[in-house]
């Protein structure tokens, strides 16, 4: 708008260009200012105050209480700390699993084979089936299918359902460290949620693999590189920037469906504790962004940008 007023004197090409640019981004600019900046400021003030909303008249009263909500969240609230830590640990366990899994699947699906389109559609299916109500039906159906299979296999074999403790013992005999073992067990338990959480990432990685110029592979082949070397010296560095993209996407996606967000929602929707809910949102978001920033910083140091 300010640039528009300068038009009193005839505009240079750059100035006209700037006006045109602002004209294109104008709706978003207004929306960002009102909804994002406005709401973030509100979030901070809400988290520092106690809010009462009269259910009858809908009048809102805010009283400044300082850090009371934060102190309550970290000292007297019964579940917040546990939910927060478990959500963050979940995110941190899921993140590498999802990235490796989706990269692995993208490598598998990148080659030409019969029915590739169908398989790609199947791997995107979890994204299509992500509605809440559908999710509950799918969880139940999975249990039913598993129960059906294990009950029918129980009649055929003596062992019955898969015995986790047997495999735990097996790994224990391999003298793996306890923490590694725990991570493997966690990962196996999460395989369903990892597959469900990597639909978009697989698509992004396939696109990334397609965008690697074929000439690089030709050179590698002529120079006599093995498949293993080609992967680590060509494919992986070329995919590295997209690993960062996928990391951001995955972390944000995991965060927005995590327990701690649900807790914040419940705190304002069911318990009407608006200030506390705002404090929950703010704290969990800041921690997530800090983790995200750290990971992206570490990855970025190793990333190689082709263009």
């Amino acid at each position: 708008m300010t640039t528009a007023k300068k038009k009193r004197f005839s505009l240079s090409y750059e100035q006209r260009n700037a006006v045109r640019g602002y004209r294109f981004i104008l709706p978003w600019l207004v929306g960002f200012a009102v909804f994002y900046v406005g709401c973030l400021i509100q979030l901070v003030t809400f988290s520092l105050s106690e809010i009462n909303i009269d259910p009858g008249t809908g009048l809102r009263q805010e009283t400044f209480v300082g850090l009371k909500n934060y102190i309550e969240a970290f000292t007297s609230h019964p579940t917040f700390k546990q939910v927060l830590t478990s959500s963050i640990i979940d995110m941190c366990i899921d993140l590498p699993m999802i990235i490796f899994f989706s990269l692995f699947v993208a490598l598998l699906l990148n080659r030409k084979f019969k029915g590739r389109g169908l398989v790609r559609a199947i791997f995107f299916l979890p994204v299509i089936l992500s509605a809440d109500a559908v999710g509950s039906a799918i969880t139940r159906a999975t249990e039913l299918m598993n129960a059906g299979i294990s009950s029918s296999s129980a009649e055929m074999t003596q062992a019955g359902a898969v015995s986790v403790s047997y495999y735990m013992q097996l790994f224990g005999d391999l003298a793996l460290p306890e923490s590694v073992l725990q991570y493997i067990v966690d990962a196996v338990n999460r395989i369903g949620s990892i597959i469900k959480g990597s639909g978009v990432q697989i698509i992004l990685f396939i696109a990334a693999l397609q965008s690697i110029p074929g000439s690089l592979y030709e050179v590698a082949k002529i120079e006599g590189a093995t498949g293993y070397e080609t992967f680590w010296k060509v494919t992986f560095p070329m995919v590295m920037p997209h690993i960062i993209t996928n990391t951001i996407y995955t972390l944000v996606d995991r965060f927005s469906t995590s327990e701690v967000v649900t807790l914040a929602t419940r705190t304002y929707k069911e318990l009407y504790n608006y200030g506390l809910s705002s404090a929950f949102s703010l704290v969990s978001t800041l921690i997530t962004i800090a983790i995200l920033g750290l990971i992206v910083y570490l990855l970025n140091k190793r990333a190689f940008y082709y263009n």
Binding site: F35, Y36, G38, L40, L43, F255, Y268, S281, I289
Partner: peptide
């Protein structure tokens, strides 16, 4: 950078202010 902020800070963070914004 603000566009990237929109990607990194999900709407879930500001759910309560949004609720208030549209309630009033």
């Amino acid at each position: 950078g603000c566009v990237l902020v929109m990607i990194v800070v999900p709407l879930n963070t500001i759910q309560f202010p949004l609720y208030i914004t549209f309630r009033y």
